[in-house]
Each structure stands twice: as structure tokens, then as C-alpha cells.
Design a protein around this nucleic acid. Structure first.
Ligand SMILES: [Mn+2]
Ligand SMILES: [Mn+2]
Ligand SMILES: [Zn+2]
Ligand SMILES: [Zn+2]
Lengths: 160, 160
DNA sequence: CAGTATTTTAGACTTGTTCCAATCTTGGAG
DNA sequence: CTCCAAGATTGGAACAAGTCTAAAATACTG
């Protein structure tokens, strides 16, 4: 033991993931990957502050460019639920779907029964060459249901 | 004939539609409705310029507030395909879906076999109370397929 | 047809994101 | 190791889409 290269048990080998994707290994990139492993469905700003708390600092622009590189390389998935900033996650390649809370925006994964895209085909493609069927379920999350039964909270809902 | 109230054959009675939705009848609102009848899936700016060409002028802000009122009243549907400004359409209440072109953004309706929301339910709701399953199909439209077969166009695709 | 509630408007502002050119870092060649 | 070119990071400006404001204009009610 002692002086051998320490492979941190806690986390998958992100450096290797990067190399595999032909991306240079940098502190910012490892930081973003570590953040994504903790936070599921995170927006750029949240990631930036998480990385900052790990490394001392990152610029927002770096986070944006790192995320763009990751999405391009296929190691991160980006979703853009209507009315929310883009969210990012490490879970790629399984074509899963999402449930988004109308009240608080919390986003939860739902497995896709099919598992590979496009998991659904419309009756009529209108000549399009389809590669993906993106499904977003909208509703109220358990937490918001509790707070949400009363008229009081309906007012709150409207106000916010 | 002659002096009786002229009900324009060409277009449905938008004034009536507005009154039915308890909304005041104004020139801007009629203009937006007329525009939406022509343009399917239009963004605020496109609508603004269409209304301007009809009435001489409208402010962008008016278009935004008119659209917000319409969506709130349920006479207009808004969709927000990832990476595009919000689109608006008159076709409401049938829970239809959309195909969006990855290259040019053209958006086409697809009928929903079920017709009322939520037309789909995930295997596991995670406690959410669901009211809608939004389905967006992504692919390449016929036009872009033509332009798109060659390497030349793959470069173009990457550039734009 | 007057009065009030609602709508329209210009303009400032916010949020999320991209572009830029200068500076720093990484991984590979020597 | 050490050096260097390709690639990554940065602050700052710029951008796109949309929201907020408070004042002026207009639509419906009585
Ligand atoms: Mn997910
Ligand atoms: Mn439609
Ligand atoms: Zn919620
Ligand atoms: Zn197209």
C-alpha cells in the first residue's frame, strides 16, 4: 500500500471515462462529473456551485463548455423541460423518460419499457426520419400534493 | 344582404371565441387569433410581425400578454421544444403530439391515438399525480433529408 | 355615454446561455 | 524530464427569450 496510485473507491473512474470519450482530463471536468454523480438532473448553475465547493472555483462559462463537450461526446444527457433551465445527468444510453412536478419542478426518472430509441412511433411520420421519442410526464409530486390539498395552497400556487 | 353585420366567411368567429372565454375583444387579440389560424406552431416574434402586417403595429409585449391570457383561458396551446422558443397553436383539447426536425426545427402535428390526457402512463409514477404525457418525436423532416444525404450537408449540419 | 376595470405600450430588467480573445493546462514528442 | 501545440479555461461582453413596471389607451357595464 502506501505510495501506490490511489483509486478512490467511492467514485467510478471518471478520468478513464473522459479518456474513453477522447476528452482531456482536467480538474473542472472531473469536478463536473463528480457533481453530476451526486446531483441528479442538475442545471448549469447548480453544477457550477457544486464544483466550486469542491475545487474552490470554476467559471460558469467553463461549466457550460464542459457540459456541451460531454453531451457532444455522449457521456452526459441534457433535457429541457418546458419552463425550466436545461438539466444534466450521467444516465445515458437507456432512453429513460421523466416526470416533472408542475409546482416545484422536481424531476424524476422513469424507466422506459422499451429501453432504446425511438421507443414509440407515431401512427403517421409525415415523412420524417425519426430517431427519438421524448416523453415527459407532468404532474404533482408527493411533497407538493401534501402542501397542495387546501385552498390556501391553491392561492400559493397561483402566487408563485 | 347589404347592411347586416358582416360575418366573415373565411374565418371562425374569433370575437365569439373570446367572449366565450370571458376575454375582452380587442384588435390585438383578434389579430393574434387570425395569425394563429394561418401560422401553425408560431413563436411570439413571428406572431408579432404577422399581426403587425394586419393591423399596422403591435408591441411584442402585447403579443406575449395576449398569448399568456389565451393559454390561461385554454384557447391556445403552448409547446416548448428543447432549443426553440415557445410555439403556439389554436389546436387545443385533443392532446395531440409533435414531430420536430432536428435540422430546421419545423414542427408537425401527430394525432394521439388516445386523444385525451394523460394518454400514456409510466410503469411507476413515483407517487406523482399525473395529468399529462407530453410526447415529442425528434427526427429529420423530408426537406432536410433531401439536402442531407451527402457529406457536404453533414458538414453544413455541424456548422449550423 | 361615463366610469371603471382591463388592456396595451415603451422601456428597463432578468435569466439562461453563447461568443470572444487572451491566458493557462494537458498530453505527447523528443 | 522539458517543451510545445492543441485544447481548455476565463472574464467580459453580447445575446435571445421572456417578464415587470407604471402610465396611457380602450372596452365593456350600467
Ligand atoms: Mn433522467
Ligand atoms: Mn400542434
Ligand atoms: Zn413538487
Ligand atoms: Zn427540417
Amino acid at each position: 500500500m502506501g505510495s501506490e496510485a490511489r483509486t478512490n473507491q467511492d467514485e467510478p473512474d471518471f478520468a478513464e471515462l473522459l479518456r474513453g470519450a477522447k476528452l482531456r482530463v482536467t480538474a473542472s471536468r472531473l469536478g463536473v462529473l463528480r457533481s453530476l454523480a451526486r446531483l441528479s438532473h442538475a442545471d448549469a448553475e447548480t453544477i457550477a456551485s457544486e464544483v466550486t465547493s469542491q475545487l474552490g472555483s470554476v467559471s460558469t462559462q467553463t461549466v457550460y463548455s464542459v457540459l456541451a463537450a460531454f453531451v457532444e461526446a455522449g457521456i452526459v444527457r441534457r433535457i429541457e423541460p418546458a419552463g425550466h433551465p436545461a438539466l444534466h445527468e450521467l444516465r445515458v444510453g437507456d432512453n429513460h423518460h421523466h416526470i416533472v412536478c408542475r409546482t416545484c419542478g422536481t424531476t424524476t426518472d422513469v424507466d422506459c419499457v422499451v429501453g432504446k430509441r425511438p421507443c414509440l412511433t407515431p401512427s403517421e411520420t409525415h415523412g420524417y426520419l425519426l430517431d427519438e421519442a421524448e416523453v415527459t410526464f407532468w404532474g404533482i409530486c408527493p411533497g407538493c400534493q401534501e402542501r397542495g390539498g387546501t385552498l390556501q395552497s391553491r392561492a400559493l400556487l397561483q402566487g408563485a
